[in-house]
Design a protein around this nucleic acid. Structure first.
Lengths: 184, 184
DNA sequence: CTTTCGTTTACAATATAACGTACGAATTGT
DNA sequence: ACAATTCGTACGTTATATTGTAAACGAAAG
């Protein structure tokens, strides 16, 4: 495998060019010297993690994006085109947008829960985790013998290998995205 | 936010203790000196990425596991607690909720785009795909020399290995969830 | 062709990462 | 109880990261 500082070199150069910035501008945004940015991009130096951190923050990219970089085939899926899965007399509705794939090992749903609506979920296999972002309404999740309340704009991540439940205790329909990641 | 070298300090100490290894043993496995391992764990030094790479390989853990905050089983993350990444003079705002992990190979963002707002994204590496669900407002994506329009409740999946852009051509702020899956 | 400008690279100085050895404290074995 | 061993930290030295300034380079304009 290619040495880590050469990976960072390529990623930083590509990112800077794509944002149309000079070395000097990156130095200004990040607080790292222009000379140093140049050396990193040419693979002439192995920077410290603090330096990488400053650059990532200055360019407003995630830290790890300088270490890894990712490619498309495009599909628009209409809500009307997916088979809704409902529970609790239709008060809980899940739209499976991206189903399980052996490589990716996750599924993605859009979920709506009317006020008072609820779902009790079965325990998934060991290593399974769920990631939920609430866009509207509120969500209460019972897991690990605890209640977690998630407000609009916030998110929650938890291990889904135990019985767990979702509720809407508010007064508006909850809209959320749910990723179920199955372990390896 | 805590400094990156202090995050690495905690992660390394926790990992070494959990594997019941001495400083000397880690030095032997990784090729980094015992003194240096000690300094890193005490937060007395900001190691280079090459050093972190050697340690990760020596301990057979992913590189990013030493750099990310340790992940508790259940986490509610408030929008206010994540560092917003913005573009287009703040008209495009991304909230990184779940960042890259060597095992799961995906990141999850919540994104808001004001009317008229736009982002031109870099091309990612081969095998990278994006999954987007629009909850509110509308989204137009340019990729593969085509326009794709996504309405509220609908979603889109595409290969992200080319230059691509996101727009809001509507009259309300667009709210969406975005998953970036990096290939293996 | 010359000048100007923006950008990148070279160079020297300084700061700090990284190493090897020594030391003190704690643990283990006799 | 004492010696040997293990462990983590201190210290001095070397290697390299990082900075600031100067020089080189390429493109555009006159």
């Amino acid at each position: 495998m290619e040495e880590i500082h050469l990976i960072v070199a390529k990623n930083l150069k590509t990112l800077r060019k794509s944002k149309k910035l000079s070395l000097e501008k990156v130095a200004e945004l990040s607080g790292v010297s222009k000379t140093m940015i140049g050396q990193i991009e040419r693979g002439e130096s192995s920077p410290t993690i603090t330096t990488i951190w400053k650059i990532a923050n200055g360019l407003k990219v995630s830290f790890t994006s300088l270490l890894n970089y990712p490619q498309p085939e495009t599909t628009v899926i209409s809500k009307a085109d997916v088979q809704m899965l409902d529970e609790d007399n239709g008060k809980y509705r899940a739209y499976p947008y991206f189903l399980f794939d052996e490589d990716k090992r996750f599924e993605v749903y859009s979920v709506e829960i009317d006020p008072g609506g609820k779902l009790e979920s079965t325990a998934h296999k060991d290593g399974t985790e769920e990631f939920i972002i609430v866009f509207e309404g509120e969500l209460t999740i019972d897991t690990n013998n605890q209640h977690y309340k998630v407000k609009p704009g916030d998110c929650i991540k938890f291990k889904a290998d135990d019985l767990h439940s979702y509720y809407n205790t508010g007064k508006k329909t909850t809209h959320l995205s749910m990723i179920i990641y199955y372990g390896t």
